[in-house]
């Protein structure tokens, strides 16, 4: 069993097809929607936590690719610049999932991409603006 957080980008042409449903039906993959930005006849974006057998997961991704869906792991879409981070903690107060958290007692701000849902609240909450997210900008 594997569990991965993926960003799926759908083209204008496929917005009205039940593609994600096929992941369940054909490949026995479970999904949890963390974020979705779907509008008729527009390019759409979904952030899903997908779990299932590894071989099925790979087949599912190949299926997505064959239907023009661009997929990437979520961590490729949101990054914290560790050199510029001052470890103030402002991001941790807005992070709803605890992905950005304070490591106590040292008080470093850590970023666990495995817990990130891609909400992007941290991007503007970070005073030195060291967190970059390319989720919405690349829809």
């Amino acid at each position: 069993m594997i569990k991965k957080r993926m960003v799926l980008r759908f083209s204008k042409k496929t917005w009205n097809q039940p593609i994600v449903y096929r992941l369940v039906k054909e490949f026995d993959l479970a999904f949890n929607i963390l974020k979705a930005s779907v509008f008729p006849k527009e390019a759409s974006l979904m952030v899903l936590e997908i779990s299932g057998e590894e071989a099925e997961f790979d087949r599912g991704m190949a299926y997505l690719e064959s239907h023009g869906v661009i997929y990437e792991p979520l961590e490729a879409n949101i990054k914290k610049d560790e050199d510029r981070c001052v470890h103030c903690g402002a991001c941790a107060s807005v992070c709803p999932t605890g992905a950005l958290a304070i490591q106590r007692p040292e008080m470093y701000v850590t970023f666990d991409t495995g817990k990130c849902s891609g909400c992007e609240l941290c991007v503007k909450a970070c005073p030195p603006r060291v967190i970059t997210a390319t989720l919405s900008s690349r829809v």
Binding site: A90, P105, E106
Partner: peptide, 21 residues
């Protein structure tokens, strides 16, 4: 610094704004 205070009987998570490190 431990990250939790009690206020009106409710636990409130705490984060800093200044950098201890």
């Amino acid at each position: 610094k431990n990250g939790m205070i009690r206020l009106n009987g409710k636990e409130v998570p705490v984060t800093p704004m200044a950098s201890y490190p």
